[in-house]
Amino acid sequence: MGRGAAAGAVLGALVVLGATPAAGAELSEVIQLMAKFECYFINGTEKVRLVQRYIYNREQDVMYDSDVGHYVGYTALGEKVAQYWNSNPIITERKRAAVDLLCRHNYQFFPRFVMERRVPPSVSISLLPSSSQGGSARGLLCSVMDFYPAHIQVRWFEGQQELSGQVVATDVVPNGDWSHQLLVLLERPPRRGLSYTCQVEHVSLEQPLRRHWGLLRDNNPAVPMSLGDTGGTW
């Protein structure tokens, strides 16, 4: 039995600000109230769990867990609120029904937009100049942009040899629009006559995507050359 922890998550946030200050007056207080809804699924909709959290100024006050069946308070104020809500049969009945109305009902949309969503990355290579003026290039930067889901593998090659010891990568960063980005630096000054390849493997790709980069072999200043999605070196 595989658990899809938060296979779909429905998030709602409400930010409440104090009254708009008069002209020239300073804002004296900011109050933030957030309601967060989470749906957990096991074997599709065979078992569904709803978790709803109420967060006040970054501190969780109250939580409802459908597996528990009632509200639980985590602060002095939260305990009072939970006690009030638990004593109201209309509120508790609506919350129990939300497991079906919010989670199970919307599950049909989750596979298409979450679990089956595939967006291939765009990949480019750029030369990273040295921090010192007139120094040689620090290395090559592989920019992997706008992909989904987040899991991805990026490798650097010099010719046919994989380079790993001089590779530094950022964390996978969410863009806020269901896409992600990643920067992978090869901290190795590129040498003339050699080709360098940034290879990206992602679930959206039928085969690894490769970007190639090299320097011309002549007496002219170094000229970067970027090739496309070819499988071999040049």
Score class of each variant (00 low, 15 high):
78 G>A: 00
79 E>N: 06
79 E>W: 02
80 K>W: 00
80 K>R: 15
81 V>C: 05
81 V>F: 08
81 V>M: 08
82 A>H: 06
82 A>M: 02
83 Q>Y: 07
85 W>S: 13
88 N>A: 00
88 N>P: 02
89 P>K: 07
91 I>G: 04
91 I>S: 06
92 T>R: 03
92 T>P: 01
92 T>E: 08
93 E>Q: 15
94 R>D: 10
94 R>N: 15
94 R>Q: 12
94 R>M: 14
94 R>W: 04
95 K>N: 11
95 K>I: 06
95 K>P: 00
95 K>F: 10
95 K>Q: 11
95 K>D: 11
96 R>A: 15
97 A>D: 15
98 A>N: 12
100 D>M: 00
101 L>K: 14
101 L>T: 08
102 L>G: 07
103 C>S: 01
104 R>E: 13
104 R>C: 00
106 N>A: 05
107 Y>P: 09
107 Y>R: 07
108 Q>R: 14
110 F>A: 09
110 F>M: 11
110 F>L: 14
110 F>D: 05
111 P>T: 03
112 R>T: 08
112 R>G: 05
113 F>N: 10
115 M>P: 14
116 E>L: 05
117 R>A: 12
117 R>D: 14
117 R>E: 10
117 R>I: 05
119 V>T: 13
119 V>S: 04
121 P>H: 06
122 S>E: 12
123 V>W: 01
123 V>C: 06
123 V>E: 09
125 I>P: 00
125 I>L: 12
126 S>W: 11
126 S>C: 12
128 L>R: 11
128 L>C: 00
129 P>S: 08
130 S>P: 02
130 S>A: 11
131 S>H: 08
131 S>V: 10
134 G>W: 02
135 G>Y: 11
